Amino acid sequence: MSQKVSDLSDVIPYYFFSLVSSCLSLSTGMVMFSWGSWGLLGIIVLSFYVIIPYLLFAVPLQVLFNKHPKKFSLLYLCLYIFFSLLAVFIYSSVLNFDFSMEVLTTMNHYAISLSAALFFWFWDSVFLQGSFRKDCCF
């Protein structure tokens, strides 16, 4: 039991770096392509805004995937995209109090979902899949 706790505590900083890098990357992309005048303030604000869906949807997947680490796996990317589409739909529906399917007709929904999945998959592969010790399983 203590070995599992020790192994988990060794990996937690990598989860944190992956999450923070993903949030900053997605926020920077969103500011560059849509909120250009916001600059650094927009990146900081959006980072706090996008951390919630990452924590609720992507991190649990990341923990599951890291039981069998594969660096830059296309299967993992496809699953991240699927759950990102779902997360962006739910998150935007809840924030806008609009549970209609109209959000699926906007290009922003797909652009944000794909970007969120790509950034998270990339940073997950860099920080966790490549750094994860092979002898560590929990």
Rank of each mutant, 00 (worst) to 15 (best):
residue 68 H to Y: 14
residue 78 C to Y: 09
residue 21 S to Y: 06
residue 138 F to L: 14
residue 127 F to P: 00
residue 93 S to M: 04
residue 103 V to I: 04
residue 77 L to S: 05
residue 24 L to N: 06
residue 39 G to Q: 13
residue 115 S to G: 10
residue 5 V to Y: 05
residue 111 A to G: 06
residue 69 P to K: 09
residue 59 V to S: 08
residue 93 S to W: 00
residue 28 T to H: 05
residue 35 W to S: 09
residue 125 S to D: 01
residue 68 H to G: 07
residue 112 I to A: 05
residue 66 N to I: 03
residue 83 F to A: 00
residue 66 N to L: 11
residue 72 F to V: 02
residue 114 L to I: 10
residue 135 D to K: 13
residue 71 K to Q: 15
residue 5 V to C: 05
residue 67 K to G: 10
residue 5 V to G: 02
residue 107 M to P: 01
residue 48 F to N: 11
residue 12 I to V: 09
residue 88 V to D: 01
residue 34 S to I: 01
residue 83 F to H: 08
residue 6 S to Y: 09
residue 60 P to E: 14
residue 123 W to N: 02
residue 12 I to Y: 04
residue 74 L to G: 05
residue 72 F to L: 13
residue 67 K to F: 11
residue 85 L to N: 14
residue 53 P to T: 00
residue 9 S to P: 00
residue 7 D to I: 01
residue 68 H to R: 15
residue 133 R to H: 13
residue 57 F to W: 13
residue 133 R to G: 06
residue 128 L to Y: 06
residue 118 L to S: 09
residue 83 F to D: 02
residue 137 C to D: 15
residue 33 F to M: 14
residue 102 E to K: 12
residue 71 K to M: 12
residue 42 G to R: 01
residue 138 F to S: 13
residue 42 G to M: 04
residue 28 T to A: 13
residue 94 V to G: 01
residue 133 R to Q: 14
residue 102 E to M: 08
residue 66 N to G: 12
residue 84 S to G: 12
residue 7 D to K: 08
residue 134 K to P: 02
residue 124 D to A: 08
residue 71 K to F: 03
residue 49 Y to I: 01
residue 84 S to L: 03
residue 130 G to V: 00
residue 60 P to L: 10
residue 51 I to P: 02
residue 80 Y to N: 15
residue 61 L to A: 10
residue 95 L to R: 03
residue 66 N to K: 08
residue 133 R to W: 09
residue 2 S to F: 03
residue 77 L to N: 07
residue 112 I to T: 03
residue 42 G to A: 06
residue 82 F to I: 15
residue 3 Q to R: 08
residue 32 M to A: 10
residue 2 S to V: 01
residue 54 Y to I: 09
residue 41 L to Q: 13
residue 49 Y to G: 00
residue 74 L to S: 08
residue 87 A to C: 05
